[in-house]
C-alpha cells in the first residue's frame, strides 16, 4: 500500500543565515532516509528543539524546498505539485503553528484573517454562514470576528488558527507544537479539539511536539528525531513499550520523571 506522503533520501540544510535567525548559528542539515505517512493516520514527531521536526513538516507542506532526495504527496513530487497544481496542494496541506499570537496579522480583524485561505485558494469571499460554521466547529462564536488578535487569549487564537487551517478542508493538518505556548489548562482542550476534528473530518494529522507522552497518548505512529535525523519510527505502542533507540528511552524516562513530580 502506498502512503499519502512518502519521503526517500530527503536532505535539507539551513544556510548560515537562517540558522543564525532561529537556532543560534552554525550550519545544520536534515536527513530523512525514509518516512511514510498513510492516509488518515495520526503521526507524532518528537524530539528536542533543533532536532529538525519543524523543518521536516515545513518541507512536507511546501514551505521549504527539498534540497536532495524525494518527497511525494499522493505519489507526485511536492516540487512538481508546486509547479503545476500548487493551489490544490496548498488546499490539501495546512498548518497550525506553535505561537498563536504570531499566527495572525495584528492589523487584520479575525474575520478577515479567517476568510483569507478561501479567498486565496478558491478566489471567492466566504459567506458569513460558512465562517460561523468554521468557528462553531472549534467552539467559538461569531462575535470574535470583529476583534483583533491582541484582544483574544492564546487558547482562543489557537482555536481560530485551527478553524482557519481547516476552512480549506485539507487532507493533512500539520500542527507544530500546537499547545506549547498555551496555559496548561487550555492545552488539553486544544488537543482534544484537534483529535475530535481529526475524527470528524477524516484528517491525516501530523503533530510535532517535544513531549513524547502527550504525543503517544494521541497518535498511532511515532517518529523520534534527533540532530536532523530520524532515530526511530513505529507504531506508538511498540515504540513506547519496546524502544529500540537509547534516545527514545531517554525521552520516555525524562517525560515520566516530569509527570511524577
Amino acid at each position: 500500500m502506498r502512503g499519502l506522503i512518502e519521503v526517500e533520501g530527503l536532505e535539507f540544510s539551513h544556510g548560515r543565515e537562517r540558522g543564525s535567525d532561529a537556532r543560534g548559528g552554525g550550519s545544520w542539515s536534515l536527513r530523512v532516509p525514509e518516512l511514510t505517512i498513510e492516509d488518515g493516520s495520526t503521526v507524532g514527531i518528537v524530539g528536542e528543539s533543533g532536532s529538525g521536526k519543524s523543518t521536516l513538516i515545513r518541507i512536507l507542506c511546501g514551505l521549504l524546498p527539498v534540497a536532495a532526495g524525494s518527497a511525494t504527496f499522493r505519489g507526485k513530487e511536492i516540487a512538481d505539485w508546486l509547479r503545476i497544481g500548487g493551489r490544490e496542494f496548498r488546499r490539501q496541506n495546512q498548518l497550525v503553528f506553535q505561537n498563536p499570537s504570531g499566527s495572525f496579522d495584528p492589523r487584520m480583524t479575525m474575520g478577515r484573517s479567517v476568510a483569507e485561505p478561501v479567498k486565496a485558494i478558491e478566489r471567492r469571499a466566504p459567506t458569513g454562514a460558512e465562517i460561523a460554521g468554521w468557528l462553531s466547529e472549534v467552539g467559538l462564536r461569531g462575535e470574535i470576528l470583529r476583534r483583533y488578535p491582541h484582544e483574544l487569549s492564546g487558547g482562543q487564537l489557537q482555536r481560530v488558527a485551527i478553524a482557519r487551517a481547516l476552512s480549506l478542508r485539507p487532507s493533512v493538518l500539520y500542527a507544530d507544537e500546537p499547545t506549547s505556548a498555551l496555559d496548561v489548562s487550555v492545552q488539553a482542550q486544544v488537543l482534544n479539539l484537534l483529535m475530535d476534528l481529526r475524527e470528524n473530518l477524516g484528517l491525516t494529522l501530523v503533530m510535532v511536539s517535544h513531549d513524547i507522552v502527550v504525543v503517544a497518548e494521541l497518535c498511532e505512529y511515532l517518529v523520534v528525531m534527533k540532530d536532523g535525523g530520524i532515530v526511530e519510527t513505529g507504531r506508538t505502542d511498540d515504540v513506547m513499550r519496546r524502544p529500540r533507540a537509547s534516545y527514545t528511552e531517554e525521552l520516555i524516562a525524562a517525560a515520566e520523571r516530569v509527570s511524577l513530580r
Partner: peptide
C-alpha cells in the same frame, strides 16, 4: 517575513507580492 502569519499566508497560497503588500 519571519512571523507565523506570513508563513501561514504562504501555506494557503498567497504570493510573495501579496504578502509584501498586504502583510
Amino acid at each position: 517575513l519571519a512571523r507565523e502569519y506570513v508563513e501561514a499566508a504562504f501555506a494557503y497560497g498567497r504570493s510573495r507580492w501579496y504578502v509584501m503588500m498586504r502583510h
